[in-house]
Write a protein that binds this DNA or RNA. Structure first.
Length: 404
DNA sequence: AATCCACTGGAAACCTAGGGCC
DNA sequence: GGCCCTAGGTTTCCAGTGGATT
């Protein structure tokens, strides 16, 4: 081995175990989960029967982003698997993010392929080419073949196009004798408390056997959460004010622990980049701006290019109109102009632009209100950006230049 | 309270690309 | 090879809507 490693020498690192600050990191000790004792207990009670190989209760969980819903569900599912295996009960857990897999067909495919073991069952779950009902049948066979109990975690359930049909099919699997020996339990996770209203009678009664709420964390709890993960850093790297500062910033926005952890990790990365020995409060403030931009870029990068052109038009109008409302038809006008002049591509139809605006609203990047302008003037939609226009424009441009 | 209009958003249909099964 | 499936992006058509003005 020659001296190929020079690149890594002499770079001081502030991290000891950065994994602790990844958002999907699930602690292996419940003492590291702060302030969620009653929720963990409720979850455990719901899942309890599965330890004996019985059917677990279906559970519905509400709570805003970053309140520990996914974390607790994953943690408890893992506990369940090991507790059950001591009784010789084999439990399968399928975690499905309905934001990514938003149609019934995608959900069942994703579910199937996570619990599947092709070597044993000889089943496959191709992304296309097989009907949805065939995928269900394959999933039932996999469950019967491999497991005594299967727990399906449906995260971001409110982001599903039509949750009813999938929920009905899953919850009624046993009654309809689709699966013979295997028991199936569902944990549904939703950001919106009103989600229940979108469900029909059957889906609601089966899913909502038990439901409970994850309240937002307060600044104190967020501080403890961050402290619980300070092993991510080397000793004495964090200056005293850092954690309280990060906690305060995150608590200001509806107690989002995920955001707090993001900010802390980014602050560390920034300190490291400038080869500082310690992470200071200044890094935290800079990290907050950075994470906001990063988040925007992450979301926008997955959108079709024209969605970004539309958003950019909104941002430009928002910027130049001071506090006058932005009308969708104005957005369309500017969008058409930007398309031909800046990106030299054919603008999409007016109808499609309205759809893109609708999607941007759904992604919580813009906010809209319907207005009527009066006799002979028609009605229109008032659009507002949720972030500063400069950040939005910057993020759009960053993706464009990054894209190739 | 009736009117009026541009805008809104649902529905249907089209197209392309990707793929499985017999 | 023919027939079946799904997905994503788009267009076309159109009934419905809000609220200031009459």
């Amino acid at each position: 081995m020659g001296d190929i490693s020079n690149y890594f020498e002499g770079v001081t690192t502030v991290f000891r175990n950065k994994d602790l600050l990844q958002i999907d990191h699930v602690p292996d000790n419940e003492r590291l989960i702060i302030g969620r004792e009653s929720q963990l207990n409720a979850l455990a009670t719901g899942l309890q029967p599965a330890v004996e190989g019985q059917k677990p209760n279906n559970v519905l969980i509400y709570g805003k982003t970053g309140t520990g819903k996914s974390l607790c569900s994953k943690f408890m599912a893992r506990q369940l698997v090991s507790a059950a295996s001591e009784n010789d009960v084999s439990v399968g857990v399928a975690y499905v993010d309905c934001f990514q897999d938003s149609t019934e067909s995608q959900v069942i495919r994703s579910l199937g392929s996570t619990i599947n073991d092709q070597e044993v069952t000889d089943e496959t779950f191709p992304a296309s080419g097989v009907s949805t009902s065939e995928c269900y049948k394959r999933a039932w066979r996999v469950m019967d073949d491999l497991y005594d109990v299967v727990v399906v975690v449906l995260d971001e359930l409110d982001k599903m196009d039509d949750p009813n049909s999938a929920l009905m099919n899953l919850s009624r699997a046993a009654e309809a004798e689709k699966i013979q020996s295997c028991k199936l339990g569902i944990i549904g996770i939703s950001n919106k408390p009103r989600f229940k209203d979108r469900l029909n009678e059957r889906a609601r009664s089966s899913l909502c056997q038990r439901d409970f709420v994850f309240p937002p964390y307060d600044a104190n709890q967020i501080e403890k959460i961050l402290e619980a993960r300070d092993g991510a850093f080397k000793d004495d790297v964090l200056e005293p004010g850092v954690i309280p500062r990060a906690a305060a910033l995150a608590a200001r926005e509806h107690g989002d622990a995920r955001k707090a952890i993001d900010i802390l990790r980014t602050a560390g990365e920034m300190a490291q980049e400038e080869q500082a020995d310690t992470v200071r409060e200044g890094h935290v403030d800079a990290a907050q701006v950075q994470t906001e931009r990063d988040h925007l870029i992450e979301v926008l990068a997955e959108q079709p290019p024209h969605s970004r052109y539309v958003l950019k038009s909104v941002a430009l109008l928002d910027q130049q109109m001071d506090d006058r409302a932005v009308k969708s038809s104005d957005v369309n006008q500017l969008y058409r102009q930007i398309c031909t002049e800046q990106y030299s591509s054919d603008p999409l139809s007016w109808r499609r632009v309205r759809d893109l605006l609708h999607e941007l609203e759904f992604l919580e990047i813009i906010e809209r209100k319907r207005k009527g302008a009066g006799r002979g003037e028609g009605g229109y939609m008032e659009t507002h950006l949720l972030d500063a226009p400069e950040i939005v424009i910057d993020a759009c441009d960053a993706i464009e230049s990054d894209g190739r």
